[in-house]
Design a protein around this nucleic acid. Structure first.
Lengths: 242, 242
DNA sequence: CGGTTGTTTGATAGGCCTCAAAGTCAGTGG
DNA sequence: CCACTGACTTTGAGGCCTATCAAACAACCG
């Protein structure tokens, strides 16, 4: 059920079998959220956090006058709102982009887990810092990468992150996003997303249709995106990054 | 020396006098960094973290071909690279924007501190999550706010954050940034920063010259920016935000 | 005082937005 | 089985916002 969550943790830290049991023991139940429905609302106090089991979810923020921006996309295995355990409430919504299933973890269980184990505290702290690193990389994309490069970079990131949890073995994988969702991820208009997508197709880099992405040549796409996966902290040693 | 750091922590959590002593005890020395000089380089393993004592610093990322983006600005009191304690190395540089003084805290001292105190662990975890929240708000700015709004928002944020540590009592405060620095913060060109600044001046919202910012009417500027400070997690209760 | 750094201004180009409308496709109901 | 609907994608036209290039100006500093 949360196998992918453990794959994700183990991609970045050692988790012993007994720790695995402890982690699995924190799950109190499942929650199904339909496409386009919020799981968490900003500024509402929370008593549990959620691990994405299946589907695609996102952190969403709004300007005062209602413009909408996706801040991070979550793949299965992600703890989508772990930070609410420490912050008590969030500054953003968490929304299901496709139909989703979440494993719910009460904060009380997390409290017990982290009080008993300094190591697991650091593992989860680490996890929340990787989210922050992803946000920083997105900031770089927004500030300094054009539409084509930015979209290519997003696809590269999702390819790697889905690969970690075994959902992108063959450079072709489900990515149930509409062009409108992409626009909200990339800070572009829908129309321009459409044109950017056409550009990437025309360049022979990928196909994207029906919620399915096929990358023709990963190397070429990464080149186009200027993608360097170091910020995902997947290799133990810094030397292997960059 | 790290008084402002304690003001900052106390704006978000209870810190007892004995905890304060413990925190002060972690500081091993000072480090002076000249303007435009890096304190930390990306992907280099670190053994200590740094609290900004005076000056202005920033997290900086680069695209593969060298375009530069500031990801977050740090004010005195900020733990500029606390996350290196958990991550071991960073995915970005930390650079002094003006001449800076840092208080250096060895990771070994942080380890002792956090192993002894679950509360302080959560306080510092919280701190690093606020950095993440700031990055998310910047993502929203990049994606959905125009140049004027975006710049106004940055100034509002810095006004609040400097106010917390007592460096912006009267809506006029030192902000030793060049227009070029602002361009790197905002994802704009230097020329356009200049024009945007002129716009804000013409609208009578602020003056910015010689590294000094004067906000004529905070309410008006916040209105222009669509600024809502909830994401800074400065009020204990979510109800007071938004 | 010349060199360097930072600010300002002008002209031009282009990336991306908005508005508008048409085309595609899956699902629904008669 | 076909008409209808709603969600999504594609295309076109026009325009604004922001970048780029170039150059003048100002301020500081050794």
């Amino acid at each position: 059920m949360i196998d992918q969550h453990l794959m994700l943790l183990r991609a970045r830290a050692e988790i012993s079998p007994s720790e695995e049991m402890d982690i699995r023991g924190t799950v109190a139940g499942l929650r199904r959220i339909a496409k386009k429905t919020p799981l968490v609302r900003a500024y509402v106090p929370l008593a549990s956090s959620a691990i994405l089991v299946s589907g695609l979810a996102a952190r969403v923020k709004y300007t005062r006058d209602g413009r909408r921006q996706i801040t991070e996309v979550h793949v299965p295995g992600d703890f989508v709102d772990l930070h609410s355990f420490v912050l008590k409430y969030l500054d953003h919504d968490v929304t299901a982009l496709s139909d989703c299933v979440f494993a719910m973890v009460p904060h009380s269980a997390l409290r017990q887990l982290t009080e008993r184990s300094t190591h697991l505290t650091h593992v989860y702290w680490f996890t929340s810092l990787v989210d922050a690193a992803i946000s920083r990389e997105w900031e770089l994309s927004f500030g300094r990468r054009g539409a084509v490069e930015r979209m290519a970079h997003l696809f590269c990131e999702l390819h790697v992150r889905l690969g970690v949890v075994g959902l992108a073995q063959d450079n072709a994988f489900d990515l149930p996003l509409t062009q409108s969702d992409l626009a909200e991820c990339l800070g572009l208009s829908i129309v321009h997303v459409n044109r950017t997508l056409m550009q990437l197709r025309k360049d022979g880099l990928l196909e994207f249709a029906g919620g399915h992405l096929r990358i023709h040549n990963v190397r070429d796409l990464q080149e186009k995106a200027g993608f360097e996966p170091g910020y995902l902290y997947l290799d133990g040693s810094p030397a292997e990054n960059r």
